[in-house]
Amino acid sequence: MDVPVIELTGVRKSFGPVDVLKGVNLAAYAGKVTALVGDNGAGKSTLIKGLAGVQPYDEGVVTFEGKPVTLHTPREAAALGIEVVYQDLALCENLDIVQNMFLGREEISNGTLNEGTMEREAAETLRSLSVRTVSSVRQKVSSLSGGQRQTVAIARSVLKKAKVVILDEPTAALGVAQTEQVLALVRRLAESGVAVILISHNLVDVFEVADYVSVLYLGQMVAASVPIAETNNEDVIGYITGTKSYNGGQK
């Protein structure tokens, strides 16, 4: 296996007396989709918030491209090229696609917004992901469908050459056709060289799109980076519910 772009070792996090993460390891590889699965309360969100720098870990080592780094603020995470696409999408419906994609990192020239550059970059990013479902980058997000919004959110994450993109339940609210579109987009995202971490409850999605699967169970990684070809639906469900344990791989 190659060197992971990002690797977590022995990550711990507790909220008061509650240990949410009890020494978790996680790795994500460039050009690969790593699915992170686990039941509600397993600690997925906490793990992700740590990666995003929103809620730093209490203990543990984060290695980025082989070097130890700190993730104490969202800014540090963003500087490394770690982007999170949240489940509720974190888009502003009253703004258009360009404004959303550049929100918080607008291109400025002479103190005012550089609309031309931003429009061009937004359109280029969408094109690089082969997105053809949006007709104009000046459309308001309120006028977009769920799948289109997900597309915008993902495009936003790769706008600034992200190296690690974390997708939190990207297909949770979508219909069948839109789920297919978004999964195809996730695939293209990985093929462009990004390390993708996909959080999902939907094992059909996971088996369709992921290269590896990592399973969290009550704050512990019970199966880490299992190649998807070496496992099956039944086993993964076993790991998620704690009725099976994984013996292979590097755990």
């Binding site: 969202p74 963003a78 974190a90 419906e93 009253n94 929100l103």
Partner: peptide, 28 residues
């Protein structure tokens, strides 16, 4: 009017009103 339409401040003001959580996550 210029500040709202053509500056970062303007976009951020609209963003905060549109979705405060999204604005926060965007690092505003």
């Amino acid at each position: 009017a210029v500040a709202l339409a053509r500056t970062k401040f303007g976009v951020h003001v609209y963003a905060m009103g549109g979705s405060a959580p999204a604005a926060r996550l965007a690092g505003i």
